[in-house]
């Protein structure tokens, strides 16, 4: 119960500070919208042939989500370290609860982004979806993995000096399998199918990353 209470307190605090400063919200939303408009103007419904549409557009959707996340999520721990609030947090809460609270915040942020971005993307690119429920499930699971991995890498990056350069270097190998699975599943959902084997792999990836993150985070966070 202590763990859950602390995780919820961190989640509530992160939302409260975010709604007042809107650093991550503005960064993620601006990046996502700018990229979406650029892609839709460059490719548009007529820019990609119908044969290539199911192959190409899911990749673009996940690239937009990846870069929007990479632009906004690393702030979660960097802000604590730069603002010197991390020490007070270390004294008051269990490390794994802090990780869970911050991961939950990032998941919520990405789910919100997907809720806004995906319908716009599908409409602007004129991409019909054969299995909408499957697409929703894939987006939820993909964002979960993306958020947990980003938070874990952000915690590592926050301890380093060359923060900007380090995030993509560390995040890339961790996120590559996730993106491959998410793209493949999204392609399937667009044509109306769902590869259950790949879905199981994605669930396993998310679960492993979450459990691994909870176990690894105290080592990163504690002095």
């Amino acid at each position: 119960m202590i763990w859950l209470r602390q995780a919820l307190a961190v989640l509530a605090k992160d939302w409260r500070t975010e709604l007042r400063t809107r650093h991550a919200l503005h960064t993620i939303a601006l990046f996502a919208v700018t990229t979406l408009v650029t892609v839709s103007l460059a490719l548009g419904p007529a820019g990609v042939s119908s044969a290539e549409r199911t192959t190409t557009l899911p990749v673009i959707l996940w690239i937009i989500l990846l870069f929007a996340a990479a632009a906004g999520l690393p702030r979660s721990f960097v802000a604590e370290e730069e603002g010197h609030t991390a020490d007070a947090l270390r004294l008051s809460a269990l490390p794994s609860a802090i990780f869970a609270g911050k991961a939950a915040f990032s998941i919520g942020l990405l789910w919100g982004l997907e809720l806004l971005l995906t319908p716009l993307f599908l409409a602007m690119m004129d991409l019909p979806v054969g299995a909408p429920a499957a697409l929703v499930l894939i987006l939820l699971l993909g964002a979960l993995g993306l958020a947990v991995a980003s938070v874990l890498v952000a915690a590592m990056v926050a301890q380093a000096r060359s923060r900007g350069a380090l995030f993509p270097v560390l995040a890339f190998p961790l996120l590559l399998p996730l993106l491959m699975m998410a793209v493949e599943l999204t392609r399937g959902a667009v044509v109306g199918g769902l590869d259950l084997n790949v879905l199981q792999q994605l669930v396993l990836y998310d679960a492993s990353l979450t459990v691994g993150g909870l176990m690894l985070f105290p080592v990163i966070w504690n002095p």
């Binding site: 202590i2 209470r5 602390q6 307190a9 961190v10 605090k13 409260r16 500070t17 007042r20 400063t21 603002g83 010197h84 609030t85 020490d87 007070a88 947090l89 004294l91 008051s92 809460a93």
Partner: peptide, 28 residues
């Protein structure tokens, strides 16, 4: 422990009361 030090900072966008309330919730 209770710690007072020059390196101890608080969330600037939260009020003094909210900052203490947050840490009180963490400590139960």
């Amino acid at each position: 422990i209770g710690w007072v030090g020059p390196g101890l900072a608080f969330y600037e966008s939260l009020t003094a009361e909210e900052n203490l309330g947050f840490h009180a919730r963490l400590r139960g």
